[in-house]
Every structure is written in C-alpha cells, then in structure tokens.
Design a protein around this nucleic acid. Structure first.
Length: 467
RNA sequence: GCCCCUAUCGUCUAUCGGUUAGGACGGAAGAUUCUCAUUCUUCAAAGCGGGGUUCGAUUCCCCGUGGGGGCGCCA
C-alpha cells in the first residue's frame, strides 16, 4: 500500500470557517494516523481578492490550531515539497499541459469561447424546467464513487461542463482533479457538499486514464439555530473568534473532532495524540451535526482548568492586555508578578473562559473599576449596611486583623458577627460590594487579603461615605 | 423540478439483530460553600411513519416523510 497523501485545499476568502477547520483537521488526523503526508494547497484562482492578506488568515488559523503541513507553501517551518508550486495561481502551466492531454484524447470542444469537457454517450436536447432553458443531455454510464465513509455511491453525470472559461481561466472541477493527479493525492477528504460534484471529478480522472483517489465525504456542520449549514455569519463560525475570546486551541480541536467522529466509546476530552491514534475514516458519521456553542464552551472550560500554570498565566495576560485591562504587564517586580499570578489563579476555577477575566478581575488592578448598580441596590436594600460597614472598617483597621491569611480574616469577621448575633453572611455581601463593585466573585477573604489592609479600608470608607 | 446523502433524548453521540437503549452538553431538584462558580447526588428526556426480512428489529431492505447538499464560464 502506497503512502497516504491527503490535501486541504482552502481558498483565501479572508475567513477561516469552523467547517474548513474540521475538514483540515480530518485530513491532518488521517495523515498523522497513517503516517502519511498532509498537503496544503491554496485554491486562489479567483484573482479579485487580496490574496496575501487573506492567505495569512489560513496560515495563522492552521498554526493556532496546531496543524502543520508537510507539503505546501513555505511558512513558519511548514511546507516545501516536490509537487509544487502549491498555489493554484502559480500552476497555470500545469493546467495547460493537462488540458492538452484531454484535447489530444478528443475529450474537449470549444463553445461560446469556453472549453468544455465532452462526456461519452448519445446526446439529445431537452428543456430544463428548473433552469428554464434547453440543455444537451448525454446518456452516460453511472460514475462510481468509492467513498470511505458512505460506501459505494453512484451518480449519473449527464451534461458536458466547462473546464476552461472564455477568459482563459480553468474552473475548479478541472484544476482540482489535475492537482490531485499531479500531487498524487490518495484520499480526498472533504465536505459532503462536494459529493454531487464528485461524478464530474471521476469522469475527469477516467478521461485522464487515472484511477480516482478514495473519497471520504464528511458530514456538514449545521447552524445552531435555523435551517441550513453553518455560514461565516453565524455565531461561533469563525476560528478567529475563538482566538479573540481566548479559547484554548486544544479545546477547539477536541470539540470539532467530535463533530462527526467519536472514538467508539464514551470518552470526549482526549489529548490530540489519542485522537490521532484512534481516528479513522470509516468511524466518521454520515449525518450532519448541529453546532452547539454551550458544549464548545464546556470543552474550553475543561481545558482551561488543567492548563499548566505558566501557560495559563501567559494566556490570561494576553487576554487582559487585548481587553485593555490595567493589569500590570509581565516582567515587573517580583512582588507584582506574584500578585498578578495569585489573582489570576484565584479567578481561574471560577470562570468559564478567559474572556470573562477582564471584568472578573477589574478591581484588582486599580481604583477605577465599574460598579454593578443593580446588584448594589439589592445589597443595600436589606439589613443595615451602614452599620456593618462601620464595624468592618473598625475591625479591619485594627492591627489585630491579620491580612496575611484568609483564615485570620475570616476569624476576624466571624468574631465581629458573633458579637452581634449575626452571621458571616451579614458582612460578606456589603463588604464584597464595597470592595469590588460586584455581588459575585472569588472568596471574600482572599480578595481582602490580596488587596491589603490599606486599599480595603479606603474602599470601605469611600463606599460608606457615599451612602 | 431533477439528482445525491442522511434519520436514536432539545443538541453531540454509543449500540455493529436479543440492552432496564448508555454517556456528554443543556435543563430541573437537592447537598456542599462567605457570594458566584466549581464539585457531588438525583431526576426528566430518544429509536420519524408504514411495510417487509427474521424466532426476534433502533440495528438489514423498500416506500413515504423530515433534514442536508448539489444542479454556474463560484470554489
């Protein structure tokens, strides 16, 4: 059995869709699973777009998701190979060469300035109701598609089709097949939306006298709400969105791997090496999967919680910086570093995703933080907040209050409460609101300890004075 | 309209003819907790309809129906 060679062939549109990401992933997984070659081929025949900038989106997204390519454009250590160039815009001479082969075999003809591919069989004219025009049908034998996921699929291709436009540019079906032949692709793994087109491709392979590759048409990802497949306008459709929101790429990969594939048992969260080990084409589902952002978020949560401390710190800081947070940048004094680290670790188990971090930690980075007015009104509406605040100020100002440990602070507040026949909860709410502007967050005593006596007392007094 | 693919809880899915149809997300209830979140326990929730084949069908076949895709000088 020859080496597996698969390709991912995106066209640079300026977006990297989650569906594209999964197609890339399944190709990549199959290559890694079989020890084959993963090829990146850029389908940039549409010259009207600004390719350079749009190409970056593809390269960056693949890199972020951790999918390196063995052959393809040379970018950041990836690419190279003996079957280039890997951009269709640079392969015109190859298409010309293959077109000559077809011409020589008598399988083309010119019409309306374009070059058409000639199917084999009897011809007759028929009026197409749907397209409202007369078309020439060809009585052909069914094309057989050997699909690793769907089995044997037969489809009759009964109309000649254009392979080179009147402006001289070859069309997708033609270049796709030519490149797959020239690059010696063994398995074509792509979205099911191409299944109906595959009969055209098989006809071309046969015309070239080449045995078609094994096809594997993977199910599509449907939009979360409403009908149809996911499109770039749908929530959660773009990879850059996950990047921007601080999602773990490992979580995104794990999640999309599970959209249409599973290891055959109950496992969901799996290291990529394990997915590579278990992935195989016949195990891919045949029916479309609906996208679910809640489950995606949950997968991200799982990965976030187990991220090594250093990685978490770096990613959290990047997220804060991107959000314009006042959090100190890395490389400061050891004391500051320790503070940032502790604040971020305090927040970690409480958040679902890194995008919550800026709002969740705002009050740790300075005196300019927002107040949840609605929650504030609620807190002030019950009990005697003013009295409680005054008592807190007095107790926390006293040297006896040890800001060095959560337990000591808890003891101070509990003693205060006990002396008045109250509970910890009678102080917790107001204190939290006064010190953070929020009604929810990490443990109050941890917040107090980290902020320190001076800031805590100042905030309590300022808050009380405004009542 | 024609062609192709497809069909298990709301969603993602397990089951490769015989199961109390399992898991996960989401939902509900309870426990834990200084708030929130986590965590833990429990609960509700599915084989599209009709025919076959078979001792026996969620599972195999056919027909409907639903869903998806394709039918460009787009990719």
């Amino acid at each position: 059995m020859s080496q597996v060679r698969v390709r991912f062939a995106p066209s640079p549109t300026g977006f990297f869709h989650i569906g594209s990401a999964r197609t890339a992933l399944f190709n990549w997984l199959y290559a890694r699973h079989t020890g084959g070659t993963f090829i990146l081929r850029i389908e940039d025949t549409d010259k009207e777009r600004n390719s350079e900038e749009f190409l970056r989106v593809i390269y960056d997204s693949l890199a972020w998701l951790g999918m390196g390519w063995d052959e393809g454009p040379r970018v950041g250590g990836n690419g190279g190979g003996d079957h280039g160039p890997y951009r269709q815009s640079e392969r015109a001479h190859i298409y010309r060469e293959y077109l000559e082969k077809l011409k020589a075999a008598g399988r083309t003809y010119e019409k309306d300035g374009a070059t058409w591919f000639k199917l084999l069989g009897e011809r007759h004219e028929v009026y197409d109701e749907h397209r409202k025009k007369t078309v020439t049908k060809v009585k052909t034998a069914p094309m057989v598609i050997e699909d690793a996921i769907r089995g044997r699929v037969e489809r009759v291709e009964d109309e000649d089709f254009v392979i080179v436009r009147s402006d001289g540019n070859p069309v997708f079906h033609f270049v796709n097949v030519v490149d797959d032949i020239a690059m010696r692709i063994t398995h074509v793994i792509r979205g099911e939306d191409h299944l109906s087109n595959t009969s055209k491709h098989v006809a071309l392979f046969e015309a070239f006298g080449v045995k078609p590759p094994i096809f594997a048409h993977i199910p599509l990802i449907l939009k979360q709400n409403g009908p149809g497949k996911m499109s770039k306008r749908d929530q959660g459709a773009l990879i850059e969105e996950y990047q921007r929101r601080g999602y773990s790429p490992e979580a995104v990969v794990n999640f999309i791997a599970l959209l249409g594939w599973n290891p055959g048992d109950d496992r969901e969260k799996m290291p990529i090496a394990e997915i590579v080990r278990l992935f195989d084409l016949p195990a891919v589902n045949q029916s479309n999967a609906r996208f679910d952002d809640k489950k995606m978020a949950h997968m991200n949560f799982l990965y976030l919680q187990e991220l090594p401390a250093e990685d978490y710190l770096a990613r959290a800081r990047a997220q804060l910086a991107a959000a314009g947070s006042a959090a100190p940048a890395a490389g400061g004094a050891a004391e500051v570093e320790a503070y940032v680290r502790e604040v971020l670790e305090l927040a970690r188990p409480k958040i679902k995703g890194l995008d919550e971090l800026p709002a969740y930690t705002a009050y740790f980075w300075g005196e300019d933080y927002p107040t949840d007015e609605k929650a504030k009104a609620k807190v002030l509406g019950k009990g005697e907040p003013k009295a409680r605040l005054a008592e807190l100020v007095e107790a926390l100002r006293a040297p006896a209050a040890d800001f060095g440990s959560d337990a000591a602070l808890e003891a101070v507040i509990k003693a205060l409460a006990e002396a008045r026949g109250l509970g910890f909860g009678d102080y917790q709410g107001v204190a939290r609101m006064a010190v953070t502007g929020l009604s929810a967050g990490p443990s109050l005593t941890s917040i107090l300890r980290l902020l320190g006596r001076e800031r805590v007392v100042a905030r309590l007094e300022r808050f009380a004075a405004a009542l």
